[in-house]
Design a protein around this nucleic acid. Sequence first.
DNA 1: TAGCTATCGGACACTGTGTCTGATTTACGG
DNA 2: CCGTAAATCAGACACAGTGTCCGATAGCTA
Lengths: 206, 206
Amino acid sequence: MTGRRTSDDLKEVIRDFRRDQVIDVARRLFGERGTIDVSMDEIASEAGVARSTVYVYFANRSELLRACLQGMYSQLLEAIASTWEEEAEPSRRLGHLVEEMLAVVDESPAFFRLALITQGTQARDGEVVGAELALIGLDIARLLHDLLVEGIAQGTFRTLDPDLAIGLVGQQIYGAMAVRAAEPMPRDRSTVSAEIVEFILHGLAA
Amino acid sequence: MTGRRTSDDLKEVIRDFRRDQVIDVARRLFGERGTIDVSMDEIASEAGVARSTVYVYFANRSELLRACLQGMYSQLLEAIASTWEEEAEPSRRLGHLVEEMLAVVDESPAFFRLALITQGTQARDGEVVGAELALIGLDIARLLHDLLVEGIAQGTFRTLDPDLAIGLVGQQIYGAMAVRAAEPMPRDRSTVSAEIVEFILHGLAA
DNA sequence: TAGCTATCGGACACTGTGTCTGATTTACGG
DNA sequence: CCGTAAATCAGACACAGTGTCCGATAGCTA
């Protein structure tokens, strides 16, 4: 049994590596063409493995989708976190948050398009994706909540129910992401996020 | 050939009636459970016709979907038009517009969830639905445009690029619809639309 | 070298779509 | 009231995709 431990560990590393290999391909394909018309066959062959092998790593299509979403999400959180600390001013933080979320959309528009709707649906891929997305939404809402409370305390934002504000701001971002996901040639990300923040802050009224 | 003309007309009426019969069922089922896990089999049997008969009226699943969307849309336009004339004040008009759009969501949340996102996708049902939705979006954008220009002229809204404003307001409405479509127990429609309009007008800033 | 394990490739059952056909019903004109 | 034409039916078909299973194989390890 000499080296059994390290041997097992190695297996695990290899396993993870393979898994990631499939996830990467899947994310790319889903991102380009949406989840529905990308078959497991195609993902497998593109990743250079047999279809049956994919089912060794992922119980089913939904598991694979979930893994893709998790990857997308941790990437998003990482990006947000990296700008979060270096910028304390609430409206600027909001700007960064928006920009990062738009960046996710830009990376995999078609994937994102699906990811958005399936919230709460029990459609083909929806069930699992929806549950996953809801959790992501909660996390973002938490960030938004802290940001708003701080902004209100600092006097940047006017005093209003944070939960209401989260809903409204969240909707604005959500809409911006969805619309952007449908655009063939999205405009410059930082310009767009600046416009959005400006609108969120001041509205339309004269 | 006596009576051929009227006979043909009658056939057409019957045909339309049957068509509508199927569309009604489809809209209900799609609305309740989304489009993807409702099969043509189920729609047919629920409508009391053979599956093959459905294919007489609709070339394929996408045609049926498109017909459902058109029904939804003309209903929406009708509802908007009825409140449009009786209210000239821009921000009130906006309120009505928002409220009617939320009403559409309330009627068929699951359907709507899909409809929103598939814009521009070539996913299973997405291609056709997307094209249809884009046209609808254009019409709503036109309404929004007129409303904004008038509001700016009247001094209700501050002076800013109407196209930019359409985008931002549109995103807010879009987001509100999508979020509402995912909620199991949506809040009172007029309260929500009032909140949305208030936000659109004044934003968060102190 | 022998054995273990991951992978392969392909067959399988199942579900849903869209097409087609031949039988049956319905409605209308004579 | 009967015959014809159209609408509708039930069901078979080909096709595509998912998920399961299994025997063969290749590569590593003892």
